[in-house]
């Protein structure tokens, strides 16, 4: 929407290329615009799973601007394909979004919000929380509140209305998330995920299940604190000061969003200035739209 609508309003024509995973929505979007009277050819779309095809069209001199949302590898490929001509390229890529919980926060409330921000859509959102830094004075209480929240979550069939987390997108994705968890555990992290029947036995058995996983005793030598996880993993690390928190938040090659949780909003705003991210939230995480329901991020 953020690309398509302004492009059309400004008077551009648009070619859409959806992911092979979700071919239907783009077809319907093209249809509603046609029904609304958009002249033929102003919106077109094509399906492809081929990197060569994408490269061919990105290189086409008739394309005046390229917007790409997806992985860092995919974005770099698009940028490279566009690099031998003068064309604007807009990329929105991955994130390793940190949350910093200060000592003065309402712990139970923050735990609820942060779990939601970390595991929504099974953590498969570029702006999901991927790292949590908690002041040492409230660390244990925070972990225990996160456990309480997770006890109430349900993993399972996405068509069931009571489900909070569906499967992750592919078997390959499941394997990659599990590899990060394994690496962390082998290097001293502790799995503090609470017992939950739906985490142990999600159904149907055919799904690519990854239960929410709460890790403590993590550090920046672990992959789970450095690389994008894109899964429902909540690694929690102790910090002893604002300065340490900011340093760790900035110790990342990504910089999409970040969040600071504190009752002292003036101090939180000050800290925002030092955090290297395109969007820094105070007392919330990624809610792109100010609408009535909490679950609006992707």
């Amino acid at each position: 929407m953020n690309g398509l609508i302004p492009a059309l309003l400004a008077g551009n024509s648009v070619i859409l290329k959806p992911s092979p995973q979700t071919p239907t929505v783009v077809e319907e979007v093209a249809k509603v615009f046609e029904e609304a009277g958009l002249p033929s050819g102003v919106i077109q779309y094509f399906h492809s799973g081929s990197a060569t095809t994408i490269e061919t069209i990105v290189r086409d001199p008739r394309i005046a601007l390229v917007c790409f949302t997806g992985s860092v590898a995919g974005g770099l490929a698009v940028q490279k394909a566009a690099s031998d001509r003068i064309v604007n390229v807009g990329l929105e890529l991955g994130g390793k979004d940190p949350a910093y919980v200060r000592a003065d926060v309402d712990i139970a409330w923050a735990a609820g919000e942060i779990v939601d921000g970390a595991v929504f859509n099974s953590g498969q959102s570029c702006c999901s929380i991927e790292r949590v830094y908690v002041h040492e004075s409230i660390h244990d209480e925070f972990v225990s509140q996160v456990q309480e929240v997770l006890k109430g979550y349900v993993v399972g069939d996405p068509f069931n209305k009571g489900t909070h987390l569906g499967p992750v997108i592919s078997k390959r994705s499941k394997a990659a998330i599990e590899a990060q968890i394994k690496d962390a555990l082998e290097n001293g992290a502790k799995d503090e995920t609470p017992d939950n029947e739906s985490f142990r036995n999600p159904s149907p058995e055919t799904g690519n299940w990854v239960a929410p996983t709460l890790l403590t005793n993590v550090n920046h030598d672990m992959i789970v604190m450095k690389d994008e996880t894109f899964g429902p993993v909540i690694p929690v690390m102790k910090v002893s000061s604002d300065e340490e928190a900011v340093r760790l938040m900035n110790d990342s090659e990504f910089g999409l969003t970040a969040s600071i949780w504190s009752k002292d909003t003036d101090r939180a705003y000050e800290l925002c200035e030092s955090v290297e991210a395109g969007t820094v939230f105070v007392n919330r995480c990624d809610f792109p739209s100010p609408v009535s329901h909490a679950h609006f991020r992707w």
Binding site: G3, K17, I57, R62, L65, C67, F68, G70, G74
Partner: peptide
Amino acid sequence: GPVLIIFA
């Protein structure tokens, strides 16, 4: 001009 939008 023609805008190409590739999305995840």
